[in-house]
């Protein structure tokens, strides 16, 4: 369970998050949605200790973010950063292998190697294993990074707008894999999404944010309404229900 209590955050004096309190229980896919600048990425980065906490408290099970050892947190919670613009010449196998670093600290055991192979198989990366990252397409590279966070074998997996730069097929495939991790591998997935339709299609729960506040929280079919789209996104996109699921008509 990730518990956020009274979290506020300023950047250069501008308020980014205002008194956020939310609990994400174990299991399922939770989507963070909201307009640009709502504070979604900041919230996710704070949960993953990527930026120092200013006010409030975040706990991941019994670990306190910002106080517990980084090495312990790295085995409990993994984050896929928003953009990875490294023109790195690491091979896919090397990159995925670094996901085991929090466990072996530089000396991989046969178990670690087996998990890396397993992760590459799950994400269809075996044919690309020896390819260098700078020769991959954006979607393949993204998949390699997700596989790295997968083999990190954490209970919680945080992803910051992973669908940026992905085409429709790659986006659907990634979301289906995340859904599978939540359903069959007991992972808890928290994901920042821009496209509401992806959130309603794949998430169990949506957290809607605007101007640094949490303004709605619940199952997609309960939360996502035309009124909400109008008040939060300030656009009058109509909403239809297709196969029991709200779909924003863009």
């Amino acid at each position: 369970m990730i518990e956020v209590q009274n979290l506020s955050h300023d950047i250069h004096g501008a308020p980014i998050l205002r008194d956020i309190s939310v609990t994400v229980p174990k299991g399922g896919v939770t989507a963070l949605v909201g307009p640009n600048g709502a504070g979604k990425s900041t919230l996710l980065s704070l949960m993953a200790r990527l930026i120092p906490r200013q006010q409030g408290r975040i706990t991941v099970d019994e670990l306190v973010v910002g106080e517990s050892d980084d090495k312990d947190l790295a085995r409990r919670l993994a984050i896929l950063p928003q953009t990875v613009h490294a023109a790195s010449r690491l091979t896919v196998r090397d990159l995925v292998g670094f996901g085991r670093y929090p466990y072996h600290r530089g000396r991989p055991t046969p178990d670690d190697r087996a998990m890396v192979e397993d992760g590459m198989r799950l994400f269809d990366l075996l044919p690309l294993a020896e390819r260098s990252l700078d020769t991959l397409s954006g979607g393949q590279r993204q998949r390699a990074f997700v596989a790295m966070t997968y083999v990190q074998d954490t209970d919680y997996l945080l992803l910051d707008e992973p669908l940026n730069n992905l085409d429709l097929a790659a986006s659907r495939a990634l979301m289906a894999r995340l859904r599978d991790l939540a359903d069959n591998k007991d992972r808890t997935v928290i994901i920042v999404l821009h496209d509401i339709n992806f959130a309603t299609a794949y998430a169990d729960r949506v957290l809607v944010m605007k101007e640094g506040r949490l303004c709605a929280d619940g199952a997609p079919q309960d939360v996502i309404t035309e009124t909400l789209i109008q008040s939060v996104f300030e656009t009058d996109a109509p909403l239809r229900t297709v196969e029991g699921r709200p779909v924003v008509m863009v």
């Binding site: 993953a48 200790r49 990527l50 790295a74 670093y101 966070t149």
Partner: peptide, 10 residues
Amino acid sequence: LGETVSLNLG
């Protein structure tokens, strides 16, 4: 791989 990935890996 950058600061974010480094922090993520502990």
